[in-house]
Each structure stands twice: as C-alpha cells, then as structure tokens.
Design a protein around this nucleic acid. Structure first.
Lengths: 130, 130
DNA sequence: CTTTTTGCAAATCTTTTGCACTCTA
DNA sequence: TAGAGTGCAAAAGATTTGCAAAAAG
C-alpha cells in the first residue's frame, strides 16, 4: 500500500490505499468511495476526499482532471512520468518522456519563464478498445 | 471577433467574443461575465457559459482546466499549439511543439494506442512575475 | 413564422467545512 | 492526554437546465 510519513495509518487510509493499489485506472473520489462501500468498508466520502488529497499532496499518488473538471487519482510509480489514458476504459499507461522534459526547459528559457511544472497527458483508445 | 458558422451572431455572443479578443490570459466564465458587466453589457451568466462552451466546441477558442478544476477560456491562434502559463498573472504564451507532437505519435504507436488528442501545458513564472 | 437564443431561478454535482466524537502515538 | 483523523450533514461553488419570452433568418 501507498505509505506516507506524517499521516497516521488508520483503517480508513489503509482501505483507500488498498483500493488504489488494486485499480489501474484514474478514478474519482466518488468511484474510490463506491468501491470501498461495495467491499463492505465503512469510510465516509469526506474522508476519501481528504485522504486522496493528502496522498496527492505528498506526491504519493497522481492526480489529473478529466474533461468535466473532476479530479481523478491513481497510484503511480515514484519517478517523474506522464500518462497515456484510454478514453473508453480509462486504462492508464505510465510513460517516461525525457525528450519532452528537455523541450519544456528549452521553451521556458526562450520565453523567459521560470518553470514550476507541466502537464502532459495523451488520450486515445487502447489496444482492447480500438 | 471570433466568428463561427451556425451560431447566430447575437449581441451577447459578439460581446463575449469581443471580451475574449481583449483578454490575453485564460479566464473563467465567471471572469468573462464580470468583465462584461463592468463594461455595462447586459449578458446573463448562463449565456456566457453557453457561448464559451459553444465556441470551445467548434475549436474557435481554447479551454483548459486550472488546478481547481475550473474551465478557463482564451481566444487563440487557429493552428495546433500548446501553452506556457504564468502561475501568478496567468499571462499565456502560445507555443508550437513539433517535436512533442512527433513524440506523442511514437509513444502511442509503441503502446498500441490510437491517439485522439493530448494535453500539454507548461506552468511557471513569467518575466515580470519572477 | 420557425428556429435559436436568452435570462432567471431552480436544480445538479463535486468538493469543502464545521463540529463533536473517536482513535493513534 | 493531546493532536490527528472521522463521519455527517450543511455549505460552497461552478455549471446546467427548464421554460417562457425575445431575437434572428
């Protein structure tokens, strides 16, 4: 399970992390909550929101926004990477993008910006859905 | 002003487009509405939402989501490009990224995905804000 | 005259908060 | 025991939607 210092390992947090380690697609707080409930775990929706947020803040899990502006979470590898997301099944593949990181730096320098971060998400249909 | 076929050029739409062509940063529907009001234009908030949405759908303007999940709009160049956004003043610079587009294709092919689109946004502090 | 658009206000929906209560360290 | 964490239910806020009136072609 995703482990984070300074966050007490409560039953609820353990449950959320467990679910996250099971799911391979980006899921909303509501979806994670639904899974918990269906598994018989008693966890409040607010707690799921708070936990997911906390985990995301420490960088333990990744977040992205779907087209509707909902926050989607997913347990991911620890090093910097981006995602290839299936627009039908939401299957997610982590991708490393060294050349893009470099490009990012270059662009920023050219424009006189001091970079703080970037978002790169590629959408499409995965093998099974196409 | 941004012109789109099949959308009747009403006073409200003209007003929204005019504001968009004035603003150089990504703005929320609420912000656009506020500007309209402050200029004495009488346009309903719902209309602003509907107009912005319609324009975005036709590709006449660009949309992106901020960290809070709010939709931000901006009139942009017609060809495919991405953005460099200042996290303080929201100043936006359009950037072309041929190498990234190529990389995107390559990754998708490798993973067996059929690409439908991608999101690339670079955030940082602009010259004036750093 | 027919089809779009609008404006409002009401309804949605996701996410956040206040608070009293329950755990963990 | 003190500080963190939790559950609800209420509060926020951004969007959407229903509908009757107004505008456009």
């Amino acid at each position: 399970m995703v482990n984070v210092e300074s966050l007490r390992p409560t039953r609820q947090r353990r449950a959320v992390s467990d679910v996250l380690s099971t799911i391979t697609k980006f899921s909303s707080a509501q979806e994670v909550h639904a899974v918990l409930i269906s598994k018989g775990e008693k966890v409040g929706l607010a707690t799921v929101y708070r936990t997911l947020q906390a985990l995301a803040e420490t960088g333990a899990i990744d977040v992205l926004r779907n087209e509707d502006g909902e926050a989607l979470y997913r347990a991911c590898g620890t090093d910097h990477h981006h995602h290839l997301v299936c627009t039908i099944c939401n299957k997610t593949t982590e991708i490393a993008a060294p050349e893009v990181e470099i490009w990012t730096e270059k662009i920023a320098r050219e424009q006189g910006y001091l970079i703080s971060g970037h978002t790169i998400e590629v959408f499409g249909l995965c093998k099974n859905c196409r």
